[in-house]
Design a binder for these strands. Structure first.
Lengths: 371, 371
DNA sequence: TCCACGTCTGAATCCTTTG
DNA sequence: ACAAAGGATTCAGACGTGG
């Protein structure tokens, strides 16, 4: 499924992290050479004093220099300039994702429209574990907003509808995505054990973005690369990436991270075109959340069969592909099969049913109830 | 808890639906007279009569750069004008809610910021039953966005934190709200049995908005009244409303609807309140009243520290003296401390928080409070 | 080995009254 | 006006420790 390279693509610094100012670096790249841009620009939080939790511990605020702007006017000029540089780089059918909070997302969205980008969806990242509002003065700020836009109205943008539907276990993917914030082992630390970047995004978020709106071999640019989540997920998924990052400390962490990332199997990257029904916890979430890796092998209940996990949450095994249920049924020659109890994965030599993982997600999904 | 009426409030056309252009009608109302505005403005640029070029020519289909830019310009002017009229009406501590989709919400949010409104939250209305995306070209657009903003940064806006927490089973209300779209009996029909309004909002949404950010007796204005959901819920909740609607057909439906609405019982309107709303009790009163004796010892929450009560209602312990809060903070090395929950006294061998005594005093005061 | 429990932390525009 | 003081306020999840 490799596409013909765009003109000038051979000169692109693929799978590298460029240093310096993102606008200058973007302007030095050839026009019309990028398939997708993912941008997580400074939010301009405008924080004032300190904030303490009720237990008197201090909240580690995002007070970095790179997030300070003196006025909306200055922020708007910055937004206009980097978006213009980004737009120039996109292929005619290219698209962009931006992410932000209420502090900046309205300015981002309006400027996207002003420049002729065509808004396709706004997507809500609903955090399953946000920081509470400690003073009880507002609603818990439990989400961030992403905007997905094509370069222009006429763009034939990439959208892997069936893959996303498969990720969502047969139901159309909605514009609100429930994904935990980046914590635990995934959260990168510096030498001192502190977080390496104040706003590292979860890989599950980028996984969904890239599966949805790119194909293997596409070139993905992230002009605010940070510690490289976009690059890491792009590499796993067999996309090429270009990162731009100003801060040397972030670049160093990202380089080390990317060196360790391994691409998933080619088979796992081929996206499903099958159609299925069935609601409930989508198996694809186990993949998105990194509980199971694309390419990982699952074992049937009697250990007579095995199958490989694909990036869109389908299985492939012995020339059979489809959902966990379909593949189980086929291999057993049965009319139906409950994939959740049929399939098992291995951890440290142990065989564990995948249903265990579903239960973990269900426990996290307490927040799905009406609020 | 009746508030003093604002100047000019006696001239307000309370609980009425005004006809005509919302900007003109808003400009005819007295400045600084409204507690809360809820606005669901149109975003369809072709909406009849709402938007004109300066020369009154028709806005063509949005099919090239010039037209796109021109139509955004017109929409922005419309947004600027009605928001300015709305802002003039708000009391200094007033607030506004606006609702929109990705077509217009970014322009609304940016203009709110430009005019000096202070964004408090963006809220995602997550529809539990959205219309699917039939063509499979995008994500199911399963949400709309609301913005909650105070008139200015310094505004002491109304937020009934405890009431919302109660609505959410004792957990802080988040910025994502799961509410079904308006269907079934709630959906108003016209004479022919068709839906009376294309975008009727669910009462559950307005219920949450008004419980959260108004008090009984507040004046709520809706400049795009439609079929009157804001008014209906305001009336149920014992708030006064003013509606403005230019379409006669909508006004008629709204009038009929509002005539049928009945206000809830006063008891039902009482919501949980926070401690902040309770009267302040100086610690010295406990000593004055003999509930605690000078010289008596108090014990910290973990029983790690103790201090002696002095006749003037200060504490002394371990070379530290001052208020119950100051001494607690000093002993804990904390930036602040709530002495009421930190300190305990002994009676018959039992350890009891001093807050119990404050509550006794408050209970006695309750009898004397004016209603 | 496993459970119970305590600790820590996350893009946060996070107070109100008195003097 | 500004400064000082009173005193109200948290959820989910990861991780470590101790029994």
């Amino acid at each position: 499924m490799t596409k013909p390279k765009a003109k000038g693509a051979e000169t692109l610094p693929l799978n590298q992290i460029l240093s310096g100012d993102c606008i200058e670096r973007m302007n030095s790249l050839p026009a019309g050479s990028i398939d997708l841009i993912f941008a997580d620009p400074p939010y301009n939080l405008q924080l004032k004093g300190d904030l303490h939790r009720p237990d008197n511990s201090k909240v580690d605020a995002v007070d970095d220099d790179w997030d300070r702007f003196d006025s909306f006017k200055i922020y708007d000029r910055f937004t206009r300039d980097w978006l213009a540089a980004a737009r120039r780089l996109l292929k005619p059918n290219g698209a962009i994702w931006v992410i932000g909070s209420y502090h900046n997302i309205f300015r981002l969205g309006a400027e996207l429209q002003n420049q002729g980008f065509w808004l396709l969806n706004d997507v809500v990242w609903r955090k399953s574990n946000p920081m509470p509002n400690f003073r009880g003065k507002r609603l818990t700020n439990a989400h961030e907003t992403l905007i997905w836009a094509s370069k222009e109205e006429a763009s034939k943008y990439t959208f892997n509808y069936e893959a996303l539907k498969a990720l969502n276990e047969g139901v159309q993917m909605r514009s609100d995505w429930v994904i935990p914030i980046c914590t635990g082992h995934e959260r990168l630390k510096d030498d001192k054990g502190d977080k390496a970047h104040p706003t590292q995004k979860p890989e599950a978020l980028l996984h969904r973005v890239l599966v949805a709106t790119t194909n293997p071999g596409d070139v993905v640019l992230d002009p605010f690369f940070g510690t490289g989540t976009t690059g890491a997920v792009a590499k796993m998924l067999g996309r090429d990436y270009i990162g731009i990052e100003r801060e040397e400390s972030y670049r160093k962490v990202a380089e080390a991270r990317l060196a360790k990332v391994r691409k998933f199997d080619r088979e796992a990257l081929t996206v499903s075109t099958s159609k299925r029904a069935e609601p409930r916890v989508p198996f694809g979430q186990l993949v998105e959340r990194g509980m199971l890796r694309p390419g990982e092998e699952l074992y049937s209940i009697g250990n007579r069969h095995k199958a490989k996990v694909r990036a869109d949450g389908t299985l492939i095994g012995n020339d059979v592909k489809g959902s966990i249920h379909q593949v189980g049924a086929q291999l057993e020659g049965a009319p139906s099969c409950n994939g959740w109890t049929y399939w098992h994965f291995k951890r440290e030599g142990k065989i564990i049913p995948i249903d265990v993982l579903r239960q973990q997600i269900r426990a996290e999904m307490g927040d799905q109830r009406p609020h």
